[in-house]
Simulated scan of single mutants.
Amino acid sequence: MSLNGKMDEGAAKGTREYLTFRLDKEEYGIDILKVQEIRGYEPPTRIANAPAFIKGVVNLRGTIVPIVDMRLKFNCEQADYNSFTVVIILNLRNRVVGIVVDSVSDVLELSPDNIKAAPEIESVIDNGCILGLGSVGERMLILLDIEKLMSSVDMGLVPAEA
C-alpha cells in the first residue's frame, strides 16, 4: 500500500523480478526469489559416472553443491570458461544447486502483460519448464521454471519416485 491508501501498482498487477543470464546467443530469466547468490566460476570436483552436464560438486560453506553446466544441458555450441562465466547458486525447496551460465545480465521486473506463452515446439528444454517469453523493449527472454527444470528426472539431482 502506498501512503494514499492505494495498492502499489507493481504488486497489484503481479509484477515479478527475474534474474537474466546468457547462454550462447540466448537470454534467459529465472525467478529472483530462487537465487541465493552469484559466484565466479571455479572448477568443481568431478563425480564419477555423472552426466556430462553435471560438472561436479563444490563445498559452499559446508554444503556440498552440485554444479550443472546449463550450456551443456541445453546443447549450446560452445562452453568456454572465461572471466564472465558465473555460477548462480539456487535455493530450490530443500536443495541447493549451482548452474553455470555465460554471464549474468541484470534483474528485470516483468508484469504479466510482458509475458507471452511459449510456442509448443520440440526442444532440449521440456515445455513444462518454460514459463513463457518475456519481452522488454527489443529483448526477448526465455523464462524458465528453474525449480521444475532442476528437479526433472533426467537431471539426476533428485531420486526418481518409486
Rank of each mutant, 00 (worst) to 15 (best):
R46T: 09
L110T: 03
L92K: 02
A79N: 14
E17M: 09
V104A: 13
C76S: 11
Q36M: 09
N114M: 15
I38R: 04
D102K: 07
V58C: 06
L72E: 12
P43S: 10
E77I: 00
V153Y: 00
E27I: 09
E9W: 03
E27K: 06
S123P: 06
G62A: 07
R61T: 09
V97Y: 04
F53G: 10
D113Q: 14
S151K: 13
V35F: 02
C129Y: 02
G56I: 01
G132N: 04
D102N: 14
T63A: 14
S2M: 15
C76T: 01
T15R: 10
A52G: 07
V158M: 11
V65C: 12
V124E: 14
T85C: 09
G98V: 04
L19R: 01
S123M: 10
I89L: 14
N127G: 00
C129M: 04
F21P: 07
T85K: 13
F21V: 02
I54Y: 00
F84R: 15
G29C: 03
A48S: 15
R39N: 07
N127D: 07
D8I: 04
L72C: 00
T63C: 12
I121M: 13
T85P: 07
D31C: 05
P159Q: 11
D154W: 01
S111L: 05
R22N: 12
G29Y: 05
